[in-house]
Amino acid sequence: MIARLWPIFVRDFVLLLKGAQGRGGAVLPLLFFMAVAMLFPFAVGPDARLLQRTGAGVIWVGALLAAILPLDRLVEPDVEAGFFDQWALRGLSEEVLLVSRIVAHWLSFGVPLMLAAPIAAGLLSLDGAQLATVELGLLLGTPGLAAIGVTIAALTAGLRAGSALGGLLAIPLAVPLLIFGAGSLQRGGEGGLLLLAAASLAALAIAPFAGGAAIRAGRE
């Protein structure tokens, strides 16, 4: 089972990282995230204290939007091309396949965001302590964002205008992660990190089963 899954995971990861044939890679969400961090100071002005107070929230909004960007290429192309059918014939369950995809998605979008966060923090005048909290929050929260993204992508695979719908569906589900993630940067908000981890774990626990059921139900 693991030996069969490894080449599938490698394919998931390479496709999500490099992108190919109508699937953008990991670069586009990353640029989007950086663009948000870069544009915000232009919009509100260079007041360092204001940026410092609001910057962490901007980083979280940027992370959430960057997570939504690749939704339409997470599951849909492989359902369309018959990969999930072929895997089902080989006795590989959709749940296990989606776990692989969540890990691959997180590696290709969560980790680059964490690497880019110091630059974004510099643009937004965050200090070192704030940056540390942001990084810890992203480490705890982006797996949840990846899980929600894959669930929604599985739900909307095969629907017309699925990608637009996917964004609308993902935002409310991701609101708890946003609240706890951004809230953890308020004074005395450290408890937010625990709630963030809890919300993230809940999303991770549900995602493979909800997504797997969605892919099976979508077969015709």
């Binding site: 496709l15 190919a20 369309e80 091309a81 018959g82 014939l89």
Partner: peptide, 10 residues
């Protein structure tokens, strides 16, 4: 199974 879905990366 071989149907109209090729299941090969284009």
């Amino acid at each position: 199974l071989a149907d109209e879905r090729l299941a090969l990366d284009g």
